[in-house]
């Protein structure tokens, strides 16, 4: 059940060398909502163990992009291959792909009628077919890893936002996923709870998990990302290691965006 460990903890500026084979491949992906063209010829390759931060202005298609990876949204053109499986909207067993991809939402989406522990046990039992005892053991392990073992018996309404989001992360990890997607996981949190969730995400990143993280927390990007991707109007405009991305952005739109976001950023970059 151990998470895959990277051989060495790669620094943020050393992408590539320690990373594994390609786990996600998007080729010329296009998506429309009705007549609205949300994703334009998106090309993206993610390697096993890679940590990618996606940023960009509101409405640029960041959520849509990562939601295509587990087909919560379908794409109309191009190819998406996840861990060797080519995705399309009509595949009969999309659930088999989804169970290997954890997803954390801005609005937590914990199941209100289940305790924190049961939220974590549901999928391992019903999807993986684990026994109740085994599922509970795993659930407790991950609740501990997100630092809230003592909240196991509580219902979501009894938890703070930060605690709920950490349960949601634990719930995904209990499926032992190969990839974790985060869609603005800290955006709905009160400022004092942002760090407790970011800390969990950082330690997950350090454990070697493949992660795609949509966030405006540039401190997080600097600290753990192998690559930062900037999207605008449905296109990937820039993709570079954080040092280069922040110090020397190539595209004018990236420069503008960084100018705005860094002047108003909530969390300072860690030293």
């Amino acid at each position: 059940m151990a998470m895959p460990q990277a051989a060495t903890a790669p620094g943020p500026d050393s992408p590539g060398s320690e990373l594994g084979d390609v786990i996600i491949e998007m080729k010329k992906v296009n998506k429309w909502y009705g007549t609205f063209h949300v994703l334009h010829d998106v090309d993206l390759q993610v390697r096993r163990g890679e940590r990618i931060v996606i940023c960009g202005p509101s409405g640029s298609g960041k959520s849509t992009l990562i939601r295509c990876l587990n087909q919560l949204e379908e794409h109309q053109q191009g190819e998406i291959v996840v861990d060797g499986v080519t995705l399309n909207a009509h595949m009969p067993r999309i659930d088999v792909v989804r169970r290997e991809i954890g997803m954390v939402f801005q609005s937590f989406n914990l199941f209100p009628h289940l305790t924190a522990l049961e939220n974590c046990m549901l999928a391992p039992m019903k999807v993986r077919g684990l026994s109740r005892e085994e599922a509970e053991r795993i659930a407790r392990t991950y609740l501990e890893r997100v630092h809230i073992p003592e909240q196991a018996g509580k219902f979501p309404v009894q938890l703070s936002g930060g605690q709920q989001q950490r349960v949601a992360i634990a719930r995904s990890l209990c499926m032992n996923p190969k990839i974790m997607l985060f869609d603005e996981a800290t955006s709905a949190l009160d400022p004092e709870m942002v760090n407790e969730v970011l800390d969990v995400m950082v330690s997950l990143a350090e454990s070697g998990m493949t992660m795609l993280v949509v966030t405006h927390e540039m401190g997080f990007a600097r600290r753990v990302a192998d690559r930062v991707i900037f999207m605008d109007a449905g296109e990937i405009v820039e993709s570079a290691p954080p040092s280069q991305f922040f110090a020397n952005p190539q595209n004018e739109r990236t420069r503008q965006f960084l100018g705005q976001i860094l002047s108003g950023n909530r969390t300072p970059a860690p030293a």
Partner: peptide, 11 residues
Amino acid sequence: GQIEAGKSLGL
């Protein structure tokens, strides 16, 4: 969101 969470878990 509840349904999406369920789908994402592979249910």
